[in-house]
Design a binder for these strands. Structure first.
Length: 303
DNA sequence: AACTCGTGGTA
DNA sequence: TTACCAAGAGT
């Protein structure tokens, strides 16, 4: 299988559902059919194509990786050599090696971790423990098929919530099933409180265009196009005359972002036509903010 | 080792 | 509505 496609799909699928990835993958490979084409792309075009997929460090690492791979003349064919490339961690290195190159690499994702943990009724298995147990299961010459089958089992039968043990081919060997509480393995993560933050984004419009900026390369939404915004603090934004507000939930905090009209451009940026906002490559937070600003600017006449 | 880093679907 | 969860990696 084409290592470029395997790599791209595996990176897109990191913490992201198949349903969300599938259409985006097709667009991506149509635009950049080879790793050489991707390596030659402009950063802003790739970031825009990634907009909405989340975890934007993946897009930055994707470009860095494509350029290294193109420079060396192709993907390395072993998990060990893939592992050092930007955005390729333990799972992705093994998955590419197994699926694209047939290496018997124990690719451990959250599905496989859950299946193995339940088979042996382990509450907090270490990576090494899972890897050893999985290694014993991989049939010779079928590593890629096997790990994909195990991932599918985890995704459809051995699900995190409400596992379908009555459909499971491993039921008679499963120690978690034997306990009567298979969903108790592995132990659920400890939940933490999600802090609330507040900020302001500015809507600056002139001659049918809005002022956009590029966020700093590191940190949240790093490298992405955005509306100019304040720092996001722990206290309520001052009482400003806002066009609207977006409530957005990130992984580790929730944000109330007020959208405020301003007159002059803020920071380094560019004018983008308001009627082509869909092409601006805004991440979801700012895409929603921009949509609300447009709606507030032109209130719908129909009640 | 613990924290950072998005988003949308599901129950 | 709330809470959980998803084919993890980087620091």
């Amino acid at each position: 299988m084409d290592p470029y496609r395997v790599w791209l799909s595996e990176v897109m699928l990191q913490q992201t559902t198949v349903a969300a990835v599938t259409p985006r993958f097709e667009r991506f490979v149509t635009k950049w059919p080879t790793v050489e084409a991707l390596a030659a792309a402009d950063d802003a075009d790739v970031f825009a194509e990634w907009a909405g997929l989340g975890y934007y460090a993946r897009a930055r690492n994707l470009l860095a990786c494509a350029r290294k791979v193109a420079a060396r003349g192709g993907f390395p064919a072993s998990a060990a050599d893939l592992r050092g490339l930007p955005g390729i961690g333990p799972y992705t290195a093994s998955a590419i090696a197994a699926i694209a190159f047939g290496e018997a690499a124990p690719a451990i994702d959250t599905n496989i971790r859950r299946v193995i943990a339940r088979l042996h009724a382990l509450e907090r298995p270490s990576d090494a423990e899972i890897e050893a147990l999985l290694g014993n299961m991989i049939p010779a010459g079928r590593a890629g098929d096997f790990i994909q089958a195990l991932m599918d089992l985890g995704a459809t039968i051995c699900r995190a919530r409400a596992p379908r043990c009555d459909h499971c081919p491993l039921r008679t060997d499963c120690q978690a099933f034997a306990t009567g509480q298979p969903e108790a393995f592995p132990a659920p993560k400890i939940k933490t409180v999600r802090p609330q933050r507040y900020g302001i984004a500015w809507w600056i419009e002139r001659d049918g265009a809005v002022w956009l900026v590029r966020r700093p390369h590191k940190g949240l939404l790093g490298g992405m196009a955005a509306l100019p915004s304040s720092d996001w603090g722990d206290s309520l934004a001052p009482d400003v005359n806002a066009l609207s507000m977006v409530r957005h939930v990130f992984t580790h905090f929730a944000l109330d972002l007020k959208i405020v009209r301003a007159g002059e451009p803020i920071g380094e940026g560019w004018w983008h036509p308001v009627d082509r906002l869909a092409d601006a490559g805004l991440p979801t937070l700012f895409k929603r903010a921009a949509a609300l600003a447009v709606a507030a600017r032109r209130p719908c006449a129909a009640a």
